[in-house]
């Protein structure tokens, strides 16, 4: 199965670069130069994944995310030249799955696209198995047990909650706001201190060297990501 990818980008060179990369990987794609055109393309070409530039000539790219999320869960990868973290966080909180900051390499782009494709398949085939694993780290969602390299590791309830949320969204950037809402519930606010401390405790249990994490990496100013590969 080959997915169709919609590339929404007004800059010709970057759009060419993205398309060239996708073509080299043998992926199918369509291009839109603005928000209006993107929405038209979504209804006419029914793409599976969207690569979306936030700075579009007609509307803010965030509008596209909002509209798409009204009816679809399709993966959206945001591309932005803006270095303002709030912008990325806002896009992610609106429902974007991932982001790329300009300039990015073909490798980075393809890594994101791979994660998106995996998610797409997971959405198509609802998860039936309760055990998820990545490179020696295994979580049994049914029994509530975590294994590292075959050894069971003891986690607190909160740490388990955090790890299972990360596993259920493996490869995706999760904003601190989203994680806090998931674990502490809405209304807890945006106090990131507690999350940071919790993450530090979890890392000390699963990472060999918390300063050089292999599983959960920090996207400074945005959130955390459980690496899928």
């Amino acid at each position: 199965m080959s997915e169709k990818i919609l590339v929404v980008e007004d800059d010709r060179q970057i759009s060419n670069f993205i398309c060239f990369t996708l073509k080299a990987e043998g992926l199918d794609y369509v291009v839109a130069g603005g928000a209006e055109e993107a929405l038209e393309r979504i209804s006419s070409d029914s793409p599976d994944i969207i690569i979306l530039d936030l700075g579009l000539p007609d509307y803010d790219g965030k509008e596209v995310i909002r509209k798409v999320r009204e009816w679809s869960e399709m993966p959206i990868i945001v591309v932005s030249a803006r270095d303002r973290e709030e912008e990325k966080v806002a896009a992610l909180d609106l429902g974007a799955d991932d982001y790329l900051t300009k300039p990015f390499s073909a490798t980075e782009l393809m890594a994101r696209v791979r994660v998106a494709r995996r998610h797409l398949r997971a959405v198509c085939k609802p998860q039936t198995y309760a055990v998820l694993s990545v490179r020696g780290l295994k979580i049994d969602l049914e029994k509530g047990i975590v294994h590292l390299d075959g050894n069971e590791i003891h986690t607190t309830h909160m740490e388990y909650q955090l790890l299972s949320y990360m596993f259920r969204n493996i490869g995706k950037v999760l904003t601190t706001k989203a994680i806090i809402r998931e674990i502490w519930g809405p209304g807890y606010g945006t106090d990131t201190q507690a999350l940071r401390a919790l993450m530090a405790c979890l890392r000390r249990k699963i990472e060999k060297n918390p300063g050089k994490p292999e599983y959960i990496i920090t996207e400074i100013g945005v959130g955390y990501r459980l690496l899928s590969e």
């Binding site: 800059d11 060179q13 970057i14 060419n16 670069f17 993205i18 060239f20 990369t21 080299a24 030249a81 300009k102 300039p103 990015f104 390499s105 073909a106 490798t107 782009l109």
Partner: peptide, 20 residues
């Protein structure tokens, strides 16, 4: 600086692909 970034993305991406 902002405006330089956009073409840089194109240059870095394309030259990396060329390398490949």
């Amino acid at each position: 600086s902002h405006d330089i970034r956009t073409p840089l993305t194109g240059i870095i991406g394309t030259s990396a692909m060329l390398e490949d």
